[in-house]
Design a binder for these strands. Sequence first.
RNA 1: GGCGACGUGGCCGAGUGGUUUAGGCAAGGGCCUGCAAAGCCCUGUACCUGGGUUCGAUUCCCAGCGUCGCCUCCA
Length: 453
Amino acid sequence: MLHLYDSATQEVRELALRQPGLVSIYLCGPTVYGPPHLGHGRATIVYDVLRRYLEWTGLSVRLVSNITDIDDKIIDRAAREGRPWEEITHKCENIWFKAMETLNVERPTDIPHATEFVGAMVAMIAELVAKDAAYATDDGVYLAVSAVPDYGLLAHQSLEDMLVGGGEREVLGAAQKRNPADFALWKFAKPGEPNWPSPWGDGRPGWHSECVVMSLELLGEGFDLHCGGQDLQFPHHENERAQAVALGKRFANHWMHNGFVVDTEGEKMSKSIGNVENLLDLTDHYDPRAYRMVLLQTHYRSPVRVSQDNIDAAVNALAGLDSFAARTASAALGAAPDQAVIEQFRERMDNDLDSPTAMAVLFDSVRRGNAALDAGDAGLAGALATSVQEMCSAVGLVLKAAGDVPEDITAKAAALDAARAAKDFAAADALRGELQAGGWIVETTKLGTTVRR
RNA sequence: GGCGACGUGGCCGAGUGGUUUAGGCAAGGGCCUGCAAAGCCCUGUACCUGGGUUCGAUUCCCAGCGUCGCCUCCA
């Protein structure tokens, strides 16, 4: 069974399941107000790998991932561009899922939108107010962190220590808050802003409230795993949890956070810095699998540098895998996987999703498989080829085997073989040049020429 | 000021108290090939600095230097 680092306890421990055979996961999704950046890509790929791996081991996964479609940033952009806010959120959401598809990230099983749960959020806030865990001010309704005895569990800092630091940042709504750490559950609308009714005044929900409501509604109390980027650990996740605790409800049983994408100087890449290369650019210019490969070769909790060198290395590594898939396509048919390989792979993945060493198993199997093929050991080659396919499917990598080749191309390959047989090497080279110019990868073996994209 | 992460061979990036190695990419040599490509084999003696623990540390401890993240709404 999978063992995962738990950000709350700061140790690797078994991912315990509330219900045998079914994993319940909540993943904080995007706020749809702009194009997805590399950090979004990392998070979604990391959790896609997690999800696929769990499913590959035979578990059912319910993965709930929200869309934040109402938020200050959305309102700001709408105002700035003089457009309806819904137009922005719809457009951005479409772009988001298109990017996810390109990255081969499976759709979550549930995709709740914040705006669909406003009523439930108001009800939850009312409950908190009734318990005196929340209170209204001039600009909204706030949660009193004093109502949460272990506030700071995820931040690993006491309330007092937190208040000492971070001097440069503005404390929102400070004037009327009971405690500077109290955060907004509900924000009153200014004229012209989108709003929903509430007993305290028309407005919109605070960011931290959506995820508690949606996770508890869809997954129920004590769900298995809550995930997101490291930057959500505090305050977002802390504050989600605070609301659940204040309500007297059990929240996530295990917390998982992925590391950042850093730029070439080693600094965090995010929207707020402005040095972003967006995700769409990356998938436009390179094989989208390359980003997944870069991430698989890095541990999910380590920072990852996305650079030209890195992407190039991944592209080249993938070429080797594709080549193996192509040359073993027939040998793999019906062959059973090598159990020792699969077990080793699982052992490594089960150890806090140690994909870098799991990839080492993959690459080693490819090398051994190629060697077996060279040695004419079709049995071993087939078993390893199947193993490689298994491992790839577990992490969402799709290898390109031969695929469909148009007739005229096949004819040229045949002509190439004929020319070689006739020792007309000038003609053979010319044919090979033509094929390569058309973007085909040409491999000439003793058994004949194969072409693939 | 507090909390946390990290410094590994040309690059990326795992891991470990000690006999033989992560892995990927790149490089060099070889095999194969008509020549290539693909593939296979071989090669590089890495672990920030200074102490300490130890028979022995890249791995443990301490200090220092350096980098990075979080400390109220960024995946």
